[in-house]
Simulated scan of single mutants.
Amino acid sequence: MSSLLAVLDAIESESAAVELRARSYELLGDLTGRTVVDVGCGGGRAVAELAERGAHAVGVDLDPDMIAVARTRWPAGEFHVGDATALPIETGSASYYRADKVLHALDDPALAVAEARRVLTPGGRAVLLGQDWDLIAIDSDDSETTRRLVHAKADSMPSPRVARGYRNLLLDAGFTDPVVEVHTAVFADDTALDVLKRITDEEGWLAEQAERANANRILVVVPMFLVAAQA
């Protein structure tokens, strides 16, 4: 848990990640006094940032250990253990819904989007944010192995390519006026190696990437899909 949190903290502290979260908040709308449900809240950083912007932010995560960390880090926040497909939130009680890097881990992401529709008030907004695991670009001398490893990591997940389908998932659930943006996360420092270690533990391939990192030649590019729509 501690090692995963350290990696997540490093990634979430990158300037591009900070800017992307801020953009996701902008796409929600006026946050002042509004209830925002942040699904898959992890360590709770987004909940704290939403609260700083005047929202009543509620974090939900399936992992009790993550919720425990979030409550410790952000004691003023509201956090609940819960499933994205069965949120502990009353019907029609939230103005906004946000899910950041969550749906790829679900067997049926459509159920989570339907649940988002349930908890939102009429006219509320949902924002979905996440990466398409099949589209990660990595500079490497061994392109064949790189392709194999990226696809293998993608295929190990329940819904690795769901991000490219966010727009249609929202439309299918009855949302309207979707806005689609694609942002690019670029890693060219030690954080890049941490990202790659989450993709594979293949020592030979990682050794080449470590050499690249030591020589300031490492590069990992991750397209991030950001889609907002109205309930």
Results as ranks from 00 to 15, higher is better:
Ala6Trp: 03
Ile67Arg: 05
Val179Lys: 13
Arg21Trp: 00
Asp190Val: 04
Asp141Ser: 10
Glu203Pro: 05
Ala110Leu: 09
Ser24Thr: 11
Thr200Asn: 00
Asp107Gln: 15
Ala10Ser: 12
Ala163Ile: 01
Pro109Gly: 12
Thr200His: 01
Val36Gly: 01
His151Lys: 13
Arg217Lys: 14
Cys41Arg: 01
Gly130Ile: 11
Arg161Thr: 09
His151Ser: 14
Ala207Met: 04
Val195Ala: 04
Leu103Cys: 08
Ile218Asp: 10
Tyr166Gly: 11
Leu5Gly: 12
Arg23His: 07
Glu19Thr: 13
Met157Glu: 07
Ala99Asp: 02
Ala76Glu: 13
Thr35Ile: 08
Asn214Ser: 14
Ser2Met: 11
Gln131Glu: 15
Tyr25Thr: 02
Gly82Trp: 00
Val113Cys: 07
Asp139Ser: 13
Arg125Leu: 03
Val186Gln: 00
Trp74Gln: 12
Gly82Ser: 10
Glu14Val: 02
Arg217Val: 09
Leu4Gln: 07
Leu120Cys: 04
Val7Lys: 10
Val18Trp: 01
His104Phe: 14
Ala51Cys: 04
Glu26Met: 05
Leu31Lys: 05
Gly29Cys: 06
Arg164Lys: 09
Arg212Lys: 14
Gln131Trp: 11
Leu111Cys: 10
Thr184Arg: 06
Gln209Met: 13
Ala17Trp: 01
Arg53Ala: 13
Gly42Pro: 03
Leu171Ala: 10
Asp61Gly: 05
Val150Ser: 06
Ala173Ser: 09
Thr146Gly: 09
Ala231Val: 05
Asn168Lys: 15
Ile89Glu: 00
Gly29Asn: 07
Glu19Met: 11
Leu170Gln: 05
Ala114Asp: 15
Asp61Glu: 05
Leu206Thr: 11
Gly130Ser: 12
Arg117Asn: 12
Ala207Leu: 11
Ser93Pro: 07
Pro75Leu: 03
Val222Cys: 11
Gly59Cys: 04
Ala99Gln: 02
Arg148Ile: 02
Glu26Leu: 09
Ala116Lys: 01
Ala215Tyr: 01
Ala76His: 09
Trp205Pro: 13
His56Lys: 15
Glu19Arg: 15
Leu50Phe: 00
Ser159Val: 08
Val81Ile: 13
Pro109Phe: 00
His80Asp: 06
Ser13His: 01
Lys153Tyr: 15
Val18Met: 07
Leu219Thr: 13
Asp61Tyr: 00
Glu19Ser: 14
Leu219Gln: 12
Arg148Met: 04
Lys197Thr: 08
Asp141Gly: 10
Arg161Pro: 06
Glu26Gly: 06
Asp189Asn: 09
Asp61Phe: 03
Val102Gly: 10
Leu169Phe: 09
Asn214Phe: 06
His56Pro: 07
Val195Ile: 11
Ala55Lys: 01
Val37Gln: 00
Arg117Phe: 12
Thr91Pro: 06
His104Met: 13
Ala48Thr: 00
Val186Tyr: 00
Leu4Asn: 10
Ala94Ile: 04
Arg212Val: 09
Asp139Met: 09
Val47Lys: 03
Ile138Tyr: 01
Phe225Asn: 08
Val119Pro: 03
Asp65Pro: 05
Ser15Thr: 10
Phe187Ala: 04
Ala228Phe: 03
Gly42Asp: 01
Trp205Gly: 15
Pro75Ser: 08
Met224Tyr: 09
Leu87Val: 02
Trp133His: 14
His151Tyr: 08
Asp201Trp: 04
Asp108Arg: 14
Glu12Ala: 03
Trp133Asp: 13
Ala84Gln: 05
Thr191Met: 00
Leu106Lys: 11
Thr35Cys: 05
His104Ala: 15
Val119Glu: 01
Lys153Met: 13
Asp108His: 15
Lys197Phe: 02
Ile67Val: 15
Leu111Lys: 14
